[in-house]
Measured scan of single mutants.
Amino acid sequence: MQRVNMIMAESPGLITICLLGYLLSAECTVFLDHENANKILNRPKRYNSGKLEEFVQGNLERECMEEKCSFEEAREVFENTERTTEFWKQYVDGDQCESNPCLNGGSCKDDINSYECWCPFGFEGKNCELDVTCNIKNGRCEQFCKNSADNKVVCSCTEGYRLAENQKSCEPAVPFPCGRVSVSQTSKLTRAETVFPDVDYVNSTEAETILDNITQSTQSFNDFTRVVGGEDAKPGQFPWQVVLNGKVDAFCGGSIVNEKWIVTAAHCVETGVKITVVAGEHNIEETEHTEQKRNVIRIIPHHNYNAAINKYNHDIALLELDEPLVLNSYVTPICIADKEYTNIFLKFGSGYVSGWGRVFHKGRSALVLQYLRVPLVDRATCLRSTKFTIYNNMFCAGFHEGGRDSCQGDSGGPHVTEVEGTSFLTGIISWGEECAMKGKYGIYTKVSRYVNWIKEKTKLT
């Protein structure tokens, strides 16, 4: 034993070699072989497995989906700052455009905790909710729209109204504003409101030439003092309507412009014939205590009207009353817009006519005020429907199939267009061939041609 100890002390290297040989010859039971080890760690190889990531292109799944990435790591994937920024906006807080917040056709661009709407022409605001041009839906104005110097929408209202708090709607500024039905039992019968379409306001006024200088022999019209197929109006439903009495009662109609003036057809009036105007009328054979009678003290036909040349060209006249009318729910003026808007309103496509005229061709006159909704007829169809001249200051309205029309005794009465609950004068009943005849239409004086003249002559002093 002493000898062994001496050998170990003198030859430590020998001992180490012996131990190493023993270990190498022993069977290893701690580690699995290569094949079995792979069965336990069965993990798919990654895209760049075996390579240094710093030297390969980034992978979106590896960089940002398996674990949260930084902007720089995302930049490695896209290799483009702009594309990385677009991805980053949604990656950080989701897609803010998912709810489609942009209105009126706006395009949404996502941002971090926010979004941006790219608005089409005519709109602005956070969600493109603000109209900035009158060309689109009248700028959301209830009545009139004008573009300011910086191309912003400025709404306005006709006389007797003021802008509401929203700067879009119009509200009454006087007790009985024009064009409004205020009798409670008839307010439910107000005709369907007309909503502004998209309009090209630059070209809204037709490029028409008034044929002022045409000389033409007097034409022989049949029954051209021209509501057939209409309905009984309720008291106060058309408070701007008046009836004219002269040699015979209810020979023509008219509309209240203001307390002192009536507008009617020029062919209705004769110099030297006494005319009485009755406002607030409903049943011409009954006294309903809503009527107001006034005498006409002055007749002003349009300066281009000449019955000797043509009885229905420039067929418009103004009547001055001896005493002002007292405005109330049964006696209310009709609204008159400017030339541009009167023309736009007419193009809405349908209007209402009213009167006490004959209820059928050569038949009896109506006792109760009649009204009828009539569609506008395109000019080409209008011209083809008659052998008589249709001037540019006239328009056609009615039904091709016949059966409904204005008729004798309705002449001078109103053709009105309702705009968001307020009625505007767009025409004056003038003439036609018979009444409600198939293929024939009622012919009306186009008020847009005469609004400046009306307003100039009827100013209240």
Rank of each mutant, 00 (worst) to 15 (best):
Q2M: 12
M6R: 14
E10F: 13
L14P: 08
I15C: 06
I17M: 13
C18M: 10
Y22F: 15
Y22D: 02
S25Q: 09
E27G: 09
T29N: 13
H34A: 11
I40C: 05
I40G: 15
N42T: 13
R43E: 10
G50V: 10
L52Q: 15
E54D: 14
F55S: 15
V56H: 15
E61N: 15
E61A: 15
E66D: 06
K68W: 05
C69K: 03
E79P: 15
Y91W: 04
D93E: 05
D95R: 08
Q96N: 09
Q96A: 10
E98F: 08
S99R: 05
C102W: 00
D111H: 08
N113G: 07
E116K: 07
C117D: 01
G122I: 01
G125Q: 01
G125H: 02
K126C: 03
K126Y: 10
N127A: 04
L130V: 12
K137M: 11
D150N: 09
V153L: 05
C155Y: 00
C155L: 00
C157T: 00
G160F: 02
R162M: 08
Q167T: 11
S169H: 06
P177G: 02
V181S: 10
S182G: 10
S187H: 07
R191K: 13
R191Q: 08
P197T: 12
D198A: 14
V199D: 12
D200T: 06
T209V: 11
I210E: 12
L211P: 09
I214E: 14
S217W: 10
S217R: 07
T218W: 10
T218K: 11
Q219P: 10
F221K: 12
F221M: 09
F221A: 12
F224H: 10
T225Y: 13
K234V: 12
G236H: 09
C252L: 01
I256E: 00
N258M: 02
N258E: 02
K260T: 02
I262R: 01
I262Y: 00
C268A: 01
T271A: 09
V273F: 08
V273P: 10
V277F: 01
V277A: 06
N283A: 07
H289E: 11
P301E: 06
N306Q: 09
A308H: 09
A308S: 11
I309L: 08
K311E: 05
N313K: 10
H314E: 03
H314C: 03
D315M: 00
I316Y: 00
L319K: 00
L325E: 01
I334K: 01
I336P: 00
A337R: 01
D338M: 04
T342Q: 03
L346M: 06
G355W: 14
R358K: 13
V359I: 13
S365R: 14
A366C: 05
Q370I: 03
Y371Q: 14
L376W: 05
S385L: 11
F399Y: 15
R404D: 13
C407D: 03
S411P: 11
G412V: 06
G412S: 07
P414A: 09
F424E: 00
A436Q: 10
M437D: 12
G439H: 10
G439M: 05
Y441C: 03
Y444P: 01
Y450S: 02
W453E: 00
W453K: 00
K455P: 01
K457C: 09
